[in-house]
Design a protein around this nucleic acid. Structure first.
Length: 929
RNA sequence: AGGCGGAUAGCUCAGCUGGUAGAGCGCCACUCUUACACGGUGGAUGUCGCAGGUUCGAGCCCUGUUCCGCCUACCA
């Protein structure tokens, strides 16, 4: 038989008819043991946890039973609105992390008795979605203009119907406890009403206005972009030095530019007013070559004298700064590049030429004229459209804006007054910085997919009518000849309303009253400005209250090179593949464990594998406790209340011990989750389950139960197992639900409540003693195991052991001798008051106790001396450190009393151990003589 | 250019308010023991980027500095 075959059978699914094999391979004999373990419903419980069987089953169970649903009631509410993923989106690591963290909070708060709602939904993603559909049209040889606005929008809706919920179904795979009955879409009827309402209100108050301004324009998407929608990157470019002669043609001025094609739109040359080189020429005119226009030399302090020649050509129509300069100096605007990125009629014979072809042509022409002074290589930062990466063009046009001044101020105040807390707090600084330098928000987009701007223009009086309902006539002159604005609103405009529009605003609904403001917004920092800041402004303005009490900012998941994962870069790790490979629970636990990582999470599969093993460990411990449960015929509830009580002096010491550790774990998890330290919560649970509960408690239960058949301890074990299952549920919902049922519960674990510290954990002196006892037993066992391993004692052979020390310690050893012998393969324990000297014995020392392992024939005295020397060698530098510390007068004088006490105690312990080792060493040496 | 973050065990990273450096994976040895080999037991491994400073005491605070990353920005 081969190992491979062995494994294959072991991992067979639950419905596999052959019962799985158990510890089957005996080396010389082909003996196969078959062990069958069944749960209460008669299913075979697999030895290896197979998540695939479990996950789908429970998600539909939860969903169909309405466990995700919430309605306002008497309880305290806790609400979260999902950052709505784009309908064009596919689940990526960012979504996975973001939604896992939210789900942990949602399930946790539910189990703590809050009435929790998590409102899901999707975003119409204007430009992104339009691009997707336009690409489809292109394949059919069509474009949106051929189709016309109405037909095009129909096409988008069709597409949305078909593919828009892909991301939603992917989210479900993560196990998210969203209230799907409340699912919203930013272009829903209700949300569209909210959008119009906000537009009209803000317009009426003068907070939305229409104006001519220079904006970022994408010549491919043919729309305005907000500042945030433009990405800047350093690129190789050239810096051209152009010579503009004075009108007397004798001398001139050299300007530097990276964009010579814009020179045809120049309306001035600016120099710094204090620049001595140009003192005399301010006010003179230069002749703009090719265009043959005269333009003035003007003073402006925004010019940096030390850059280039200290003289700047001013092109107000195609440069943000120049636009500002032109306003200060009342310069005319001359547009030379059009919306398609081609030269306009103002460019004379270059008309209709592409902007980059025109650059080459104009540079050549200038060279011929002898006006090109020089060309240098230069790194420049070009703006690119965040959707299609086309280089954007600054363009002067008429757009709609939100006046952000006071809105932003209120949003700043709210955070300063901690009505909304940003966590981690360092993000506050970025938030303030951005908010305090905010510009008016350009909200109009020249695309078709989105909320159409509710403004109508009168063909007769040119008046503007803004209204939530489609008007019949101009509100100014009553003329029926009106037409609606062609533009739609920035996608983020509707997203900004998300925390209240999803709750029914502008209606004053019961939901709105009950759930607003939301408890927390969970998001990555990359949309802190795009979205969070704008929700703050809108929430405060329209609801008169912050939209969320907390903002929790988590990391961005990056690839191994620290780059943001994106489809265009092709560096995406698909979470769905990870789920397929390791299971959702393992994946979720990994994400929670890594949530603390600074700004980037670089996902490593090794780590996920580790947590998959953890789930398996949990699974197998469940198999064990359930065998015992069925044997003993125990059924839930395993305790009358959820209280963890330590004050039962008749209880088993190991129960007192594990209950204390459970209680510590509980407070650790609560503290961590209340402070959004997901990784700490995960670590505390991992440590408890594996290294306290499984490693020690279950092993001791085995020993105890085989001796005493004590059902009370089994019940305590089941109580602890169920409690830790509940504690883990928010992190790993699927496996915990399965376990909860295996333990004999018929209801969902989602209905269970988190173990609660409100019922105080009492502990009397007896329990405390028990806890300390077991800690000591563990310490003793570890020391003995250590010796066995270091002395290469064969694992299967039992060894005699003796103990020497104070009565108190000896009675402890006596009391727990069964645990000690069974856990160390020991036998014939003997107790002594005085230290021993026996040949062939290895020695260990812990506080107040000497441990002797009798290894005649296994260990030579000389070898034992070497071993002791090693121990002594390890202790020496430690002792030196403490000696120095305690001899330091300043330390004694200035350190807090408790630190000094602690130091003294550790020192005493080390010293005792050190001395005992030395004594033992001497005795063995004497034996050798 | 400014702002922010990172630099800790071979790898991926924890380390909250300064008080004997941790986890997971990997590695070495033993081990298929009756929940689990996706397991058990034991073990090795770090001048906490570098240089100063404050402090009785610094991975943590301060100053400077070097790499790496991100964000913002009007040097044309």
């Amino acid at each position: 038989m081969q190992t491979g075959a062995f494994r294959d059978i072991r991992n067979a699914p639950a419905n596999y008819t052959i019962l799985h094999l158990h510890k089957c391979f005996k080396f010389h004999f082909n003996v196969i043991y078959i062990l069958v373990i069944m749960d209460t419903t008669g299913n075979i419980i697999n030895k290896a946890y197979s998540y695939k069987d479990v996950e789908e089953k429970w998600y539909s169970f939860w969903k169909e039973n309405g466990f995700f649903h919430s309605e306002p009631d008497q309880r305290a509410s806790y609400s979260i609105v999902i950052p709505p993923p784009n309908i064009t989106g596919f689940l990526h690591m960012g979504h996975a992390l973001n939604n896992t963290l939210q789900d942990i909070l949602v399930r946790y708060k539910k189990m703590r008795g809050f009435n929790v709602v998590w409102i899901p939904g999707t975003d119409h993603a204007g430009i992104a979605t339009q691009n997707v559909v336009e690409r489809q049209l292109a394949q059919e040889g069509l474009d949106r203009f051929k189709l016309g606005r109405e037909k095009f929008i129909e096409r988008v809706w069709e597409w949305k119907k078909k593919s828009g919920d892909v991301i939603v179904h992917q989210l479900m795979k993560l196990g998210v406890a969203c209230d799907w009955s409340r699912q919203r879409f930013t272009m829903d009827e209700g949300l569209s009403i909210a959008v119009k309402e906000v537009f009209v209100r803000l317009y009426t108050e003068g907070l939305i206005y229409r104006g001519e301004y220079i904006i970022n324009w994408c010549p491919r998407c043919l729309t305005a972009l907000s500042d945030l929608e433009v990405e800047h990157k350093d690129e190789d470019g050239k810096l051209y030095y152009l010579f503009y002669p004075f009108s007397d043609l004798k001398e001139g001025i050299t300007v530097a530019t990276t964009r010579p094609e814009t020179m045809l739109g120049d309306t001035a040359v600016a120099v710094h007013p204090d620049d001595p080189r140009y003192k005399g020429i301010i006010g003179k005119n230069v002749i703009l070559p090719i265009a043959d226009r005269e333009i003035p030399v003007i003073p402006d302090s925004s010019v940096h004298s030390d850059f280039g020649t200290g003289a700047v050509k001013i092109t107000p129509s195609h440069d943000f700064d120049d636009f500002e300069v032109s306003k200060r100096h009342s310069l005319p605007l001359i547009q030379v590049i059009d919306r398609n990125g081609k030269m306009t009629a103002n460019a004379g014979k270059y008309q209709n030429m592409d902007r980059y072809k025109a650059r080459t042509a104009i540079v050549e022409k200038l060279q011929k004229l002898g006006l090109l002074v020089k060309v240098e290589d230069y790194k420049l930062s070009a703006g690119r459209c965040y959707r299609c990466s086309t280089i954007t063009e600054p363009m002067v046009s008429t757009q709609w804006f939100v006046k952000t001044g006071t809105l932003a101020q209120h949003a700043v105040d709210a955070v300063k007054e901690h009505r909304t807390r940003i966590i981690p707090i360092q993000w506050e600084k970025s938030y303030f910085e951005w908010m305090e330098n905010i510009k008016d928000w350009c909200i109009s987009r020249q695309i078709w997919w989105g909320h159409r701007i509710p403004a109508w223009y009168c063909d007769d009086c040119k008046g503007i009518t803004v209204s939530t309902e489609t008007p019949k006539a101009c509100s100014k002159c009553n003329s029926p000849n009106i037409h609606q604005d062609e533009d739609v609103l920035d996608t983020w405009f509707s997203s900004a309303l998300w925390p209240f529009s999803t709750l029914g605003w502008p209606e004053e609904t019961a939901d709105l009253k009950y759930y607003y403001p939301t408890g927390v917004l969970v998001t990555a920092f990359d949309i802190l400005f795009f979205w969070v800041a704008r929700m703050m402004m809108m929430g405060l303005k329209l609801m008169n209250d912050v939209p969320f009490r907390h903002v929790y900012i988590h990391a961005i998941v990056r690839d191994e090179f620290g780059k943001k994962m994106s489809k265009t870069k092709g560096n995406v790790i698909d979470p769905l593949l990870i789920i397929e490979k390791y299971g959702t629970d393992a994946f979720r636990f990994t994400l929670a464990s890594m949530a603390a990582q600074g700004r980037d999470i670089k996902l490593s599969e090794q780590r996920i594998l580790g947590y998959k093993n953890f789930i398996n460990k949990l699974w197998n411990s469940t198999r064990f406790v359930n065998i015992k449960r069925l044997e003993a015929g125990l059924n839930p509830p395993f305790r009358q209340s959820g209280e963890i009580h330590l004050n039962n002096s008749s209880e088993n010491p190991i129960d007192a011990w594990i209950n204390k550790k459970l209680s510590d774990t509980l407070s650790g998890v609560l503290d961590a989750l209340e402070n959004y330290r997901f990784n700490d919560a995960a670590a505390v649970l991992y440590q408890f389950v594996w290294h306290e509960y499984c490693d020690w408690y279950l092993e001791m239960v085995k020993i105890h139960y085989s001796e005493s058949s004590d059902k009370a301890t089994l019940e305590n074990m089941l109580f602890v197992h169920e409690a830790l299952t509940k504690l883990l549920h928010p992190f790993i919902p699927f496996v915990t639900e399965e376990i909860y049922h295996i333990l004999g519960n018929s209801d969902s674990i989602m209905k269970a409540s988190y173990p609660d510290l409100k019922q105080p954990v009492k502990s009397d002196r007896v329990s405390e003693t028990y806890v300390h006892d077991i800690d000591t037993v563990i310490e003793v066992v570890k020391r003995i195991r250590n010796i066995r391993a270091e002395c290469n004692v064969p694992a299967a052979s039992d060894v005699d052991m003796s103990f020497a020390g104070a009565d108190e310690k000896l009675s402890l050893i006596e009391k727990y001798s069964t645990y000690i012998t069974k856990m160390t393969h020991g036998k014939n324990i003997k107790l002594h008051r005085e230290p021993l000297t026996i040949k062939g014995t290895a020695v260990e020392h812990i506080e107040g106790l000497n441990i002797y392992i009798h290894l005649s024939g296994v260990i030579e005295p000389s070898v034992e001396i070497q071993r002791l020397d090693k121990e002594i060698g390890k202790l020496q530098p430690e002792l030196e450190k403490y000696k120095y510390k305690l001899n330091n007068e300043e330390f004694i004088k200035k350190a807090p009393q408790e630190v000094i006490e602690e130091t003294k105690q550790i020192n005493a312990e080390l010293r005792e151990r050190y001395e005992q080792f030395n004594v033992s060493r001497k005795r063995i040496e004497e034996l050798l003589k």
